[in-house]
Amino acid sequence: MAVREINVSVLTEKVRELCISVNLRLSEDMTAGLKAARETEESEVGRSILAELEENLKVAENEKIPICQDTGMAVIFLEIGQDVHFTGGSIEEALEEGVRLGYTEGCLRKSVVRDPLIRENTKDNTPAIIHYSVVPGEKVRLTLAPKGFGSENMSRIFMLKPAEGVEGIKKAVLKAVEDAGPNACPPMVIGVGIGGDFEKCALMAKLALTRNISEPSPLPHIRALEEELLTEINKTGIGPGGLGGRNTALAVNINTFATHIAGLPLAVNICCHVNRHAALEL
């Protein structure tokens, strides 16, 4: 079996590039979602806010000014084919160096404090939150999703009972969205993880935010739940900017996993309309 060698400097360069590009330009699924929201919004204030958000995207791209000043904490998913051998140094250090270079060279905000209680800014936005997984093959997939904390702060985990079932899930997701309201910069994108255990559901919810909002779950019953939740969320009236309207969320993306006979874990990871994500294969 041949082993594919990749120098870690490639990781540094790709992370650097992605940090800058995702903060200046949203993916097409997101821009299409915002446009569709503006075209369907009934509230006049809501329409004008959505128009400002579209205008903001143009200014960001043309002037190279980040879409939002909260350029996030860098979340990296690295899927490594088991036939790959990384050379030239530590994978982790290479990823961190990419974040350091991207946030410094790209005029991105440094929003990370080293210790959660002492709270001294690290001044280069490191460390990143890095999730590794090992998969068959010789490919490497790198996903970068910088996460702003206005919406992260409104995210929730619910350890539901199996008897609460799908109704319990709907109630909890709606509660999280209602509590988030204007704080999470609606229209939001809702990442949901159902099943697994305490940390697995949170990770699935975060990963769900990296899926294009135009791409539903491949599971028919989950796809139906995504659609139903989106409809219910858009009946809350929260609307763009929380100032009233029909577009409170652009999408609900759900990931699921096996769970224990005694449990129904649920995580709701809320993202604002600046849902930045990009992936590439090495």
Binding site: E52, V59, I65, P182, L243
Partner: peptide, 13 residues
């Protein structure tokens, strides 16, 4: 007052 959240590039002008 509220300003539009997530419109930081536009507001900077």
């Amino acid at each position: 007052f509220a300003a539009v959240g997530g419109a930081g590039a536009l507001l900077s002008e």
